[in-house]
Each structure stands twice: as structure tokens, then as C-alpha cells.
Amino acid sequence: MQSSSHAAGGAALPVPRLAGHFASLEVQNHAARLGMWLFLATEILLFAGLFICYGVYRFLFPEAWAAASRSLDLTLGTINTVVLITSSLTAALAVHYAKEGKNKMVAVQIALTLVMAVGFLVIKYFEYHHKFEIGTLPGRFYSYEGIQLPGVPLYFTVYFCSTALHGLHVVIGMVVLAFSMVRALKKADFGPNNYTMVELGSMYWHLVDLVWIFLFPMLYLV
């Protein structure tokens, strides 16, 4: 998108830039979107690896899995799910307004998304903090006397690996969306022909939401 140094056609408008090797802007946008889908496919496979760990160890230690998942705070988990789904809505609305060229609204919606993302991380911090206090930690650091079953530390290994990787994605998504927000405020050049940046950032954010939609019932409910 930005790699090209020349604007094809030499039009007065600086945005959106069309790289010389694309037939048209639509094709260029299509290529950007396809690249994003390919990247998201690798992300899905990355998380799938953790889901397989979950599946295998759940199969080996069903009692430990049931007991350990009940030790999590369902209320906090549910609040976090609602927060993330709502942040996905505002991210989708940001793309909607970007297409209409309402840059102020784009910035507002992304700001709301970022606020909810921070909320998600704060709630996650409290959950982690509680686990460190009572000692439901992975591997040999597990020291919680309330649940003593073989395999419980493995549950918390899977729990911490998957939620921490997800949390990292939340942070990355926040950075990506923050760039779009700054651009919407400073350059205010999003419009019907130029919204790919918001769209791809928002797609990343929806992936974060998507992963949580699966992690939440797997870790907290069943």
C-alpha cells in the first residue's frame, strides 16, 4: 500500500496510492485483504496448536479439567467476553464510518475499542493476580491445596499459555488500531476509496475476539 513511491495517473489526490503493478485500486484493495486473510489463517493455526494441547490433556485428565475450570471466576470471564464482543462492534463501526469518510466518528469508535481493550486487560490482570496469590500456576509452581488431582498444573499451563498469547494479541491489536485512530485525527483522509488501513486493523481485532469466543467456554465453562 505504502511501498509504492509514485501515484499512478498522476492525479492531484495523494491518497489512495496505487502501486504500479496493480491494475486498479479495487485489485490493490483485494490483494491487501487477501494478504490479511492469509495472515489471519496462520494466526488461527497458531492458536489451534494450543487448542490441541487443551484437547489432548483434557482427554487424559477429565476430572482435573472439570475441577480446575470451576476454580476460575466465571463472572469476570463473562464480563470480559461481553467487553470484547462490544469492542468488536465498535471496531466494525469504525470501518463503517471510514467508508463514509466520517473521520471523527472513526476516531471515536476506535477510542471506544481501545478503552474496552484496556478494560479487558485490567480484568485479566486481576484474574492473573488472584491465581498468583492462591498458587494455581503451571507446572511445578502449582501450590493450591484446594484442588489436588494429577493433571491440574497442566490445565493451568494451557490456561496461562493461551490467555497470555491472546493477551499479547490484544496489545498488538491495540497498537494497530491506535495508528488508524491517529491517522483519522491528524490526516482525516479515510473515505470510500481509502479505508483499507482501518479495515485490516479491525479484521485483526475481530480475530482477537474470535479466539476469545472459543477460549471462554473452553476454559471457564466446560
Partner: peptide
């Protein structure tokens, strides 16, 4: 297609 293939491979991998 990209998405369908990735889901297919996730299911195989599981």
C-alpha cells in the same frame, strides 16, 4: 478459500 482451507487444516490437526 483461504479461510475454508485454514479451518479444514485446524480440524485435521485436532
Amino acid at each position: 478459500l483461504v479461510f475454508a482451507v485454514s479451518i479444514l487444516f485446524v480440524l485435521l490437526m485436532l
